[in-house]
Every structure is written in C-alpha cells, then in structure tokens.
Nucleic acid binder design. Sequence first.
DNA 1: CCGATACGCAACGGTTTCGTTTCGTAAGGG
DNA 2: CCCTTACGAAACGAAACCGTTGCGTATCGG
Lengths: 202, 202
Amino acid sequence: MTIQESTTARPAGRPRSEKAEKAIIETTLDLIAEGMGVSELTIEAIASRAGVGKTTIYRRWSNKEDLVVDALATLKAPLPALAGESVRDDLIVLLDAMRSEAGQSRSRCVMNIAMSEADRYPRLMERFMKRAVEPRKLAMRGTLERGIASGELRPDLDIDLAMAMLSGTMMHNTKWGPPGDLPLDLAERIVDAVMAGIAPHS
Amino acid sequence: MTIQESTTARPAGRPRSEKAEKAIIETTLDLIAEGMGVSELTIEAIASRAGVGKTTIYRRWSNKEDLVVDALATLKAPLPALAGESVRDDLIVLLDAMRSEAGQSRSRCVMNIAMSEADRYPRLMERFMKRAVEPRKLAMRGTLERGIASGELRPDLDIDLAMAMLSGTMMHNTKWGPPGDLPLDLAERIVDAVMAGIAPHS
DNA sequence: CCGATACGCAACGGTTTCGTTTCGTAAGGG
DNA sequence: CCCTTACGAAACGAAACCGTTGCGTATCGG
C-alpha cells in the first residue's frame, strides 16, 4: 500500500527456487511412471531423488495428494491438430495420438493410476479427467458428429458406442496386446476395421 | 517305508486346518476386492480379519506374493457354455460374461491389479493370465474362426483385431463408461455394432 | 551490510509393518 | 497316555515413513 507493490507484492527474503519446484514435480512424475502407485509414493523418496530437502516439499504442499494433483496437472494435453478433411483421417490422427502416448512410460503409468486408483483418490482423478481425458473425448465426438452430417458415417450411429469401439480397441492393444512397440499402422487398421465391421459385405 | 504310507504319508501331529486356509484366502480376495493394491495388503490385516494368527499364514506361505498368487489362482474361470449355433449369439454370451463379471467387485479389482501392477508382479500376472484370461481368449478366437468358416464373418478378418474390438469395447465401457450398472443389452449392442461397422452400408 | 527467507541436511519421536519367537492350548496318531 | 504338530495370541527388534525441528549456508531486497 506504500508506493508500488508491482504486481504481486513480492515478500522479502530469498525467493523460492523454481528449479527445486520443477525437480520435485519431475521426480514425482518419474516415480509414478516407474510403476509406483500413489500410495507407495513417499515424500522421502521424492525428496532424496530430487536432491531436495523434505522441508522444501512440505513448504509447498501440505500432503502427498496435493503434490500428486499438481504434478499430474502439469501433464498438458496437446491435442493433435485435425485436418478436418476426411473423418477417417481425423479418427486415425486421434487414435494414433493414443498409440504414441502409450509408448511413453509417463503417460502409460498415469493411465494405470487412472484405472486402478480412481476410487481411492476421487479428487485426483476428477481433475485428471477434466484436464486430459475430456478434451480428447470431445474431439472424437465432434469428429464423429461431423462424419454423420457429411454422410461418411451411418446416420443412426450410436456415438458413445462408436467412441468405445475406437478407444477401447486401441486401449486393449496397449494393455493386453503383444509386448513391445505397437505397429505404426495400428490406428489406421483399427479405424478401417471399426468402420467396415467384421461381418461380410451385405 | 514301513507298511503303508497310504497316498501322501500323513505326518504325525495335528493336521493343518483347512478352515483357516480357506479363511485366509477368502480374506485376501476380499481385501483386494475392496480396492487394496497388492503392495498395500498387509499380512497382519489379513490375519486379523481372517481371525487367524500370523504364524498360521507364514507357516503356509513364505511371503505376501506367494499368498496372492495362490489366492488369485482359486478364482476359477467358469467359461460360459456356448450354444454353437450362431456366431453372433456366442459372441454375445462371451461379452455378456465380461459384463456381468464387471459388476462383481471381486473380479473387478482383480482386473485392476492385472492392469496396473502387471510389471511389478510379473510372476503373479503370468499365472493369472494363464488361468483366467487365456481360456476366454481361446474361446473367442474359436468362435471367430468358426464364423469365418461358416461365412458369418468376412473371410479376410483379422482375428486379433476383431478380438480387441469386441473385448476392448466392453472393457472401455466397464472402465470409463458412466457409473452404475452396465445396461443389460450392452453385449448385444456391442456385437451388432462391431459386426456392422460404423460406416454406412456400402 | 543487514534482515529476512529458502535452501539442503540431519535428527527427532511416533506409527506401521515386517518376519520371528515364545507361550499355553487344541487335536490328531501310536 | 504320550508324542507330535498346529493353533491363536502376544511380544520382539528391525526397518521404513511420517511430519517437524534445528542447523549452517545461500540468496534476495533495502
């Protein structure tokens, strides 16, 4: 209230190290990506691996869950750009984004948490859903609606069921398919198969 | 080596209580079904809930993983009987078995473990896969092959991809679909949608 | 330079689980 | 009856984390 507090009234003293903050969050994500469940994460392990005192963590987050929420929130979802020409191409782009993300251990184990600890950490999952899942669902829904309008998809299409077919088939491959990298043309094959169906041409 | 050792040369002394053994395994499955990860299971919690001394557990299993392996192995997989008339009907039966199992907390959380802790407990998963997953996969594969032979399915069908489409769509609904029970006709709708495809009639 | 704050580090007491051991009792076989 | 083994209960020392505190140092504003 004196003369100028600039924008945020910087407090006196040494400012908090952004490097430490980044290291903490990165380490948290790394540990999760290595298959560690939320309940197995320990503040001490994060601190030691990040080269940081526990104090520095507790000064920023009051408990483990808050830290994990913030860490997951930094996983941005750079939605792939859709050409918007053919619905088939757009669906392939969307599914191929899933395929390539499945190869990254980080996204993969975040997905593990999403599927196995959803009930135990509802706040965490709610936030993660809104941030990472919803935008993709909306993009796919929009593409399917466009396909119905343009006649590229059947007019009586059950959109929710179609989304489950597309995403579910890809997820089934990432989770239960043969080990190793997924074939590069998997998205294309899935989209074509889902579009054509498994019954013979009528 | 004296006269008769019957079948298994019963040792002297008090025999082990089958009741205790059963209680231990049931309690283990219950705890897992309540959303407890393998790493969060504690021998003490199992012992106390089962009304059993820790000694009784350690006398039978040398560590937690061995116990969980045995517990999961007792989850038998009563494959649904397939009529073998129409491929569509058999696929519906197979998928509907998945749907109804998804409603049971026990099978559900076993699935959670399967998907999230597969890398951490590979022995455990290998055994579980062989016991519970493989028979179902074989049944579905057989049905699809029969459908190709009978002309009910397209002759150039990619069987693995078709299995991923069917199972993946159902799993997507169980995991990411709206909360609450799955609609009773979900299996039928999935099978019909997968067979017909989402593209318009050619 | 000085005061204030953050830093990494180490240690604290408290809790939980571990795997083991000891205890007195229960239940079979010879 | 006696020997053997299993039983449930309780307690043990060791280890891992918890959340907190004190320490000496580093880094900012004034």
